[in-house]
Design a protein around this nucleic acid. Structure first.
Lengths: 230, 230
DNA sequence: ATAAAAAAATGACATACATCATCTTTCGTT
DNA sequence: AACGAAAGATGATGTATGTCATTTTTTTAT
């Protein structure tokens, strides 16, 4: 279980960091990062930042998943991304100069480090490797979202659900997917009831198994086939 | 009418440039840009680059609009963006290191300048202003796409059409919108037939006027209302 | 000017999905 | 352990939108 206090995580030993943008060629900057970051414990459902506010810094996920979502006109959430350990989130709005277009909320109890805007921009300016990493990340996400938009526009809900499960299987690194039906529906872009029915179908087809809230993927190949063409 | 030859456009006098990322604090770099760019004439429907290929450089639109689109599993186009004069396109994949996730095609006869990958990356490295502009642009687009995804997931086709027309009114800077019904449908994310019917509805409601292929916006306020809530 | 090709328009029809209402199960708190 | 609240599940119903087929209009090329 996670320590409930403000646990200070050392960047030097942080496992999550090694998979992050702070990984390569970063040894000489580690102490700087170490000094300027602060760690906090986020309870499940606690927001990191909220759409419409201005960014104060970036968040580095040490432990726990975070949903990144926008709200439609009726307030319904559309989950854009589910971030896992090692990811750095919230930097988009720091470069665009405008407010957050999305919100981020902890999906489970989490350990998250914070680096202030000034410190982060400083590091970007002085560290070309980090900067290139950020630019690569921005670009990669931009490509991902083009695909996301296309899937939204052209795939059926069933296909999108299959695609979402494949993505989530990776996010949860083989662990069982642990999301409320509502969050899953808001990721796929459908009504909760529809999602529940389609999950049941997939279960009956032997593609997944449902353990109450947790979803286990049984037949990934079939899932990919469903997600793919018609 | 546009000159059909390889017209060399001078960056110094290029009107489009002034609205572009190459605008601010760029005087001392103008000659460099001038030397390293090449101009070409693109015929309507001529591709600039194609999904799956690797980027060779960036394209700077001097005259003429360009559609940026992805293809779904069945090959159907999903238009992600319609670029107008002054925009620079195709740089995403240069930073991500991977292939284009989208294609770009001239929507009309166009004058487009090209800057090779090496030259462009060079400029990025040595010119912080340009670099920041690029980062701002990447970030802004990323935010736009979060909204795009949300609209796709939550709005009706009619609402999306209204939203698209508002965007296009800006792209065409008050000129009449000039797109095939199919392209418009592929931007809105719907079937061509559905789009045609909804356009007719809007016309009957006095919101737009249809001059064969060209669309004129009559009542923008009403359009915004339709695009907005329910 | 005319033919051929592409785009636009219209109608008929089928269905995937949203919505609303209700019920059951699970979870979190005291 | 027990209560209330949240999450999950199921059924009934309506409709927005996709699909297919055909016709009309516009554009392009010879």
């Amino acid at each position: 279980m996670l320590d409930k206090s403000h646990k200070h995580v050392s960047c030097a030993t942080c496992q999550a960091r090694k998979k992050s943008l702070f990984s390569a060629n970063f040894d000489e900057n580690l102490s700087h990062l170490e000094e300027h970051k602060s760690c906090s414990y986020f309870k499940k459902n606690q927001p990191l930042f909220i759409e419409g506010s201005f960014p104060r810094g970036v968040y580095c996920l040490n432990q726990g998943k975070v949903k990144v979502f926008a709200r439609g006109d009726e307030g319904k959430e559309q989950i854009i991304h589910i971030a896992k350990e090692g990811e750095i989130i919230g930097f988009r709005a720091m470069f665009s100069g405008d407010m957050y277009k999305v919100s981020a909320t902890a999906l489970e109890d989490a350990n998250i480090c914070f680096i202030s805007k000034d410190d982060f921009l400083d590091m970007i300016d002085t560290n070309p490797t980090l900067r290139n990493g950020i630019m690569r990340e921005l670009s990669k996400e931009l490509g991902d979202r083009a695909v996301f938009i296309t899937n939204m526009a052209q795939k059926s809900v069933r296909e999108r659900l299959a695609a979402a499960l494949i993505i989530l299987d990776d996010v949860y690194s083989g662990e069982q997917i642990n999301l409320t039906r509502e969050d899953l529906a808001n990721f796929v872009g459908t009504a909760t009831e529809t999602l529940i029915r389609l999950l049941k179908d997939l279960k009956e087809e032997g593609v997944i198994d449902i353990h109450t809230r947790k979803l286990e993927i049984i037949d990934k190949d079939k899932l990919m086939k469903i997600a793919g063409g018609r």
